[in-house]
Computed example of a mutant assay.
Amino acid sequence: MDDGKQVTRKSSPPIKVYCLPDEKEQIEAQARAAGLSSAAYLRQLGLGFEVRGILDYEKVDELAKISADLGRLGGLLKMWLSNDERLQQFSEAQIEKTIKVAMERIEEGQEEMRRVMQTVLMQQR
């Protein structure tokens, strides 16, 4: 019998899942990693859908290391450009070479970050 009311998830009876506190925490952590609520995560699992995480934590760690390397290079470059006393002991050619090498390493790091980000994006498709 159609009474004109639209059936929604909120108006449907829930399925209860009893679990221990540590199991609940684990489910909630997995749901967060997938960018879903616990209910949506469990629903997708129950319906046979593959639940993918929104982040590849190994890739995020790799990006953080690359970013730290770039930060250190930037700091060294800044030191070279701002510390007049230390620069006096080097020739202009040495300074230019050091700055050029630092810039090349920064560009390599940026390219590596782009490569890692591209692999993360490809995994999400």
Rank of each mutant, 00 (worst) to 15 (best):
D3A: 10
K5N: 15
Q6T: 15
Q6G: 07
Q6V: 15
V7E: 07
K10P: 00
S12I: 03
P13N: 11
K16C: 02
V17T: 01
L20F: 03
L20S: 15
L20E: 14
E23I: 01
E23K: 02
E25D: 11
Q26N: 14
R32H: 10
A33N: 04
G35H: 04
L36V: 08
A39C: 04
A40W: 00
A40S: 12
A40K: 13
Q44S: 06
L45E: 01
G46Q: 02
E50I: 07
E50W: 06
V51L: 03
R52F: 00
R52Q: 13
R52D: 01
G53S: 12
G53T: 14
G53H: 13
I54F: 05
E62H: 08
L63G: 04
L63D: 03
S67A: 15
D69V: 01
G71K: 02
G75R: 01
K78S: 07
Q88F: 04
Q88S: 05
Q89F: 10
F90K: 07
E92F: 09
E92R: 15
A93Q: 13
E96G: 08
V101I: 14
V101Y: 09
M103Q: 15
E104I: 13
E104V: 09
R105S: 14
I106A: 08
E108Y: 10
E108S: 13
E108M: 12
